[in-house]
Every structure is written in structure tokens, then in C-alpha cells.
Computed example of a mutant assay.
Amino acid sequence: MSRAIDVYTIGFTKKSAEKFFKFIRSSNISTLLDVRLNNVSQLAGFAKRDDLRFFLRELCEVEYIHLPELAPTKEILNPYKKGEMSWEVYQDKFLNLMAKRRIEKDIKSILLQGGCLLCSENEPHFCHRRLVVEYLNDSSELNLKVKHLY
């Protein structure tokens, strides 16, 4: 088994900017990996792409990278958000999408070490960021030690 890689996940909803950036700063995160499909929504507040990149750099000395290949497609996400698809079906479709994309071949351990996957959901239980790290643990040689920040 390879050496464990510390990786974090966080959602921005139900968090003040103060709480969000304190989590990032206190967790020794080096790179925020944005796994949202839409990272420029007006609803994102302080977590809009350009604002977030600025705040991370200035407040936390953290790099920002958008990884839309780790996000579900609109065809998967929208029916789930509208309540037209159960979590179980959403999860199955997203896991199949990651397998089809072969994300485990493209994601390098150096990117994940000290990285933090960002999505909008407050908690990881029903969020694709949790599915991403679980999929990578199951489908690659990566040994991810995951800590969800919420």
C-alpha cells in the first residue's frame, strides 16, 4: 500500500466566508480543487471562481484549480437537483461517468496531497465530492486519507 495522501473536501453553503477561509487556513491546504460544474453562479457569493481565486491567494496562500472533469454533467445533476432522480440513481450515474472518463488515470497524487475538493453542498453525505474521493480510493493506487470539513 502506498503512503497515505491527506486530502480534504469542503462545501461553501451554510458557511460564512470567515468560517470557510478559517477551515482552509487551519487545515494546511495547498490547493483548492473546484469540482463544481458551474463555478461562476451568482448564488455562489464569495465562492465565485474569480473572487474565490483572489481570496484563497490573498487570505490563505492557496492555489485554485477548476477540475470540471470531476463534476457531474448537467444531464445527471439537474434531474437530481429537481428531485426527479434519487440519490441512489444519481450516485450510480456519476460513478459510471467517472469510470467512463477514467479520472483515475489523469488525477495525480501531487495534485491531491494537501488538496481540498470544493463543491456547494454543506455536508459530504449527499455530495459528489465524497464520491470522487471514494472512487479514486477504490479505482487507483492512491491511498487517500480524507477529511471532510463542515
Score class of each variant (00 low, 15 high):
3 R>P: 05
6 D>C: 10
6 D>I: 05
7 V>R: 07
8 Y>G: 10
9 T>N: 05
12 F>S: 00
13 T>D: 01
14 K>T: 09
14 K>A: 01
15 K>S: 11
17 A>K: 14
19 K>L: 12
20 F>N: 04
20 F>I: 09
21 F>E: 02
23 F>L: 14
23 F>V: 01
26 S>L: 08
26 S>N: 10
26 S>E: 14
27 S>A: 00
27 S>N: 12
31 T>Q: 08
33 L>D: 05
34 D>T: 14
35 V>A: 15
36 R>K: 07
39 N>G: 09
40 V>K: 14
41 S>Q: 12
46 F>T: 03
46 F>I: 04
48 K>F: 04
52 L>W: 01
54 F>Y: 13
56 L>F: 01
60 C>P: 04
60 C>Q: 11
61 E>R: 15
61 E>L: 07
61 E>P: 09
63 E>I: 01
63 E>V: 00
63 E>K: 08
65 I>Q: 12
65 I>V: 14
67 L>Q: 13
68 P>H: 08
72 P>W: 09
72 P>E: 09
72 P>C: 09
73 T>L: 00
75 E>Q: 00
75 E>S: 01
78 N>E: 13
79 P>I: 01
79 P>T: 05
81 K>F: 02
82 K>H: 07
82 K>E: 13
84 E>S: 02
85 M>L: 02
85 M>P: 01
85 M>F: 06
85 M>K: 05
86 S>P: 10
87 W>K: 03
89 V>L: 15
92 D>A: 14
92 D>E: 15
92 D>C: 09
93 K>D: 06
94 F>R: 03
95 L>T: 05
96 N>G: 06
97 L>K: 11
98 M>C: 05
99 A>E: 15
100 K>Y: 11
101 R>E: 05
102 R>K: 13
102 R>N: 07
105 K>R: 15
105 K>A: 12
109 S>P: 12
109 S>A: 11
111 L>S: 11
113 Q>E: 14
113 Q>R: 15
115 G>S: 02
116 C>P: 03
118 L>Y: 04
118 L>F: 11
118 L>N: 08
121 E>Y: 04
126 F>M: 11
126 F>K: 15
127 C>H: 14
128 H>W: 07
129 R>T: 08
129 R>E: 03
129 R>I: 05
130 R>P: 09
132 V>F: 13
132 V>K: 11
132 V>T: 13
136 L>T: 06
136 L>D: 04
137 N>H: 03
138 D>G: 08
138 D>M: 11
140 S>L: 10
141 E>G: 11
143 N>D: 09
144 L>I: 02
144 L>R: 07
144 L>M: 06
144 L>S: 08
148 H>D: 10
149 L>G: 01
